[in-house]
Amino acid sequence: MKVTIEENEETGKFTIKVKTEDGEEKTIEIPKENLEEILAKLPPNVEII
Rank of each mutant, 00 (worst) to 15 (best):
E36Q: 13
T20S: 07
P44I: 10
G23D: 02
N8H: 09
E36V: 10
G12F: 03
E47F: 06
L39E: 00
E33D: 10
N34L: 14
I16Q: 00
I49D: 04
N34I: 14
G12Y: 02
T20D: 08
L35K: 02
E33S: 11
V46W: 10
K17I: 14
P31K: 11
I30Q: 00
P44G: 08
E29G: 03
L35C: 06
E10C: 13
T27H: 09
P31G: 12
V3S: 01
E33N: 07
I49F: 06
E21Q: 09
I28F: 15
D22S: 10
A40K: 10
I16W: 00
E29S: 10
K19T: 15
V46Q: 03
T4K: 01
V46R: 06
K32L: 07
L35E: 00
T27F: 14
E37V: 07
P44L: 11
E24F: 11
D22M: 07
E29F: 11
E47Q: 13
E37S: 08
D22N: 11
E7D: 05
E25G: 02
K17N: 12
V3H: 01
K17Q: 07
I16Y: 03
L42P: 04
G23I: 01
E9C: 13
E25K: 03
P43L: 05
K26E: 10
P31A: 13
N8W: 03
N45H: 10
I5F: 03
K41C: 12
T27C: 08
E10W: 11
A40V: 05
N8A: 04
L35T: 01
E29I: 14
E33M: 06
K13S: 11
T20H: 11
V3M: 03
E37W: 10
E25D: 03
L42T: 01
I48Q: 03
E47N: 07
E36W: 14
I5Q: 00
V46S: 06
K41S: 13
K19S: 10
T4A: 01
K13A: 07
V46A: 10
E10F: 10
I49V: 08
E10Y: 09
K26N: 08
E37M: 13
I5K: 01
I30N: 00
L42M: 07
K13Y: 12
E24W: 08
I5H: 00
N34V: 14
E21S: 10
E33Q: 08
N45G: 14
P43C: 13
P31Y: 13
M1N: 05
N34P: 02
E36A: 15
A40Q: 10
M1I: 14
I49Y: 05
D22V: 04
I49N: 07
E36P: 12
E37A: 10
E37Q: 10
E47Y: 05
A40D: 05
P44Y: 12
E25R: 03
E33L: 05
I49C: 08
T15G: 01
T15N: 03
K13W: 15
P43A: 04
T20N: 10
I30V: 15
E10N: 08
P43G: 15
E37K: 07
E6M: 12
K17S: 12
E47V: 13
E9R: 13
E24K: 12
T15L: 11
G23E: 04
G12M: 02
G23T: 03
T4N: 04
E29K: 04
F14R: 00
I49E: 09
N34A: 13
K41H: 08
E21P: 10
E10R: 10
D22E: 09
E9D: 10
I30S: 03
T27E: 07
K2L: 11
L42R: 01
G12H: 03
V18F: 15
I38N: 02
I16D: 02
K17A: 08
I49A: 04
E29M: 09
I16M: 06
I38M: 12
I38R: 00
K32D: 04
E25W: 14
K13E: 10
T27I: 15
P44E: 10
N8E: 03
E9A: 13
E21D: 10
G23Y: 03
I30G: 02
K26Y: 15
K41W: 11
P31V: 09
N34K: 14
K19C: 13
A40I: 03
N8F: 04
E6H: 11
